[in-house]
Write a protein that binds this DNA or RNA. Sequence first.
DNA 1: TCCTTGCCTGAAACCGGTTTCAGATTATGA
DNA 2: TCATAATCTGAAACCGGTTTCAGGCAAGGA
Lengths: 334, 334
Amino acid sequence: MKSNRITIQDIANHARVSKATVSRVLNDHGTVNAQKRDAVLAAMGSLDFQPNQIARGLAGGRSMTIGILTQNIGTPFYDAVIRGIINGLAGTGYSPIFVDGQFKQDLEQKVIQTLLGRSVDGLILVGGDLPVDQLEQLRHTAPTIVVARELPQWGDHCVSMDNLDAGYQATKYLVDAGHRQIAHIKGNSDHEDAVRRYEGYCQALADAKLPLDEELVYPGNFYGQAGVLAVESWLMRGKNFTAIFAANDLSALGARLALYRRNIRVPDEISIIGVDDQLEAAFMTPPLTTIRQPAEPMGAAAAEALLALMNGREYKLPTLRAELIRRESVCGLH
Amino acid sequence: MKSNRITIQDIANHARVSKATVSRVLNDHGTVNAQKRDAVLAAMGSLDFQPNQIARGLAGGRSMTIGILTQNIGTPFYDAVIRGIINGLAGTGYSPIFVDGQFKQDLEQKVIQTLLGRSVDGLILVGGDLPVDQLEQLRHTAPTIVVARELPQWGDHCVSMDNLDAGYQATKYLVDAGHRQIAHIKGNSDHEDAVRRYEGYCQALADAKLPLDEELVYPGNFYGQAGVLAVESWLMRGKNFTAIFAANDLSALGARLALYRRNIRVPDEISIIGVDDQLEAAFMTPPLTTIRQPAEPMGAAAAEALLALMNGREYKLPTLRAELIRRESVCGLH
DNA sequence: TCCTTGCCTGAAACCGGTTTCAGATTATGA
DNA sequence: TCATAATCTGAAACCGGTTTCAGGCAAGGA
């Protein structure tokens, strides 16, 4: 597969100028006589010239690539964040390169090295577990934005949503609707977001002077099956509760299924609220009341922030807050 | 942000050898005296050397990147295919670069050019609309695999599932369960997969000597709302039907919701079958009977095939077939 | 008219690797 | 012991661009 691609030298020959001049018009840099510029442009057009980014990257020190570290958690949330990033980068000349950390610290470090080996111009870390001091160090190697991970001390290098607030809003909404016995299906206990949502749950309970019943907190994992098991375990033990706050939509769905099997009506007998507002939530039966995570906007904001950061432009991060989406899976108790 | 990264020359100085020798041990190429090799290796270790992929790409002609053209359709299916690709490429030294074609031919062509400009070593096209002759041409520029698009004439450069078969299986399952009036919610009419599934539906009907009622075919778009509207339009017009074949799970969900609103029981009164088997399907109420698309395996197979293709290795594509997943949204009519 | 000045331009160095090629060294065989 | 082959090695060319630098040229000022 011999590369017969035409190079800047071909253009130079064709337009009877030097490589340097071609480079100048290519980058719109320095001054070039209008006639020569036109000749170069014409040559580029007729020869269908496509500059070699690899060579540009090597020579210019800018590879025009952005490294993206993802965590292959397989939830719709991360996928949406990534979509946001891809869209945010589209048409900017920068291309995203993806590597997968699988939520393992050592692997994360390794794949970030491969990213650096590719001289990425910037880094977007989606979630992940890297300790802050390593992030700090990384930041001095390449412009870095962390997204979908709460790092308060990182200020404007971090695009995230307040998960404690999300948990709080969800729980408070149930409390305000009159619920007093509110169960919770947790996400993975080693997952920061899950812990924060749980903290929000606790805090809302405390603020309402409601006791926290540990037995009404099920150690889930963000998957649907966890929701099923949670409900079954509570029912089995004869626990009383009128509402469930699930750490994400998928486990809310699982919970709803378990109730369906027992012929327990939602929301009449038991209310359910989730977190995510993924596409399917609106079509659950009944449509799921949930806390919307602005996943795609987060990704887009991260991309935009990184672009600004790399080019030394000012920028400010949008404040992305969890938003309560009222649908029909929660009803008032009066 | 001065790049103080250490280079092959630093290693060479440190180990008292030439760049050429360092390169040789780096690539395990040619012969190198064991002592010098050790010295080089030691230098690499102590200096924490990370070869510059950009430079390697330029010099060696292999960029170790794979271009991925995606269609930002936003459905879980494509996301899953992409996950499969990322996983399939993980640990191979190749990194995926993503561009988005948004299902627009002209944009697809443009972004493929940017991929080529980055001297990708291979190309994976996920879905898309590019005409076959352009694909054919592309194939001679870089090793190319098409995934999630049926291109029978492309033989082993194409990883796909038979969507006609998927539609046929779904419909036949309903027929075999005793259903005679089977409605269908189509996907986008300009989407090949949707058309094929519809063809499968028609064929299964024909094979069962059942008439095709055009009014029971709703022109959907793979989204949930289409499912809702489909059911409402049929009900409004007083159409009789006992089963629905939805072109994907999401529109099946929509249909289920519309029935729920009318208090029509599933599957007792109306059966539903979808296509995809996305994560949520198993937790629908009732759990959705569906045709599983092996999305992640398709992505993984595409990655594997491309790797083999690029390195001139033999390979054979797995036969990935739609698989009926029996759950509870379909019941027999007897 | 001569000297600056500023505008253009091409030659050449450079980015960090790979690869070719020829020479040096060592091992082998006669 | 010497010729020959096999094994190693470094210098230099090269990949396709960018950037520096010095010089050529025309315009402007004295």
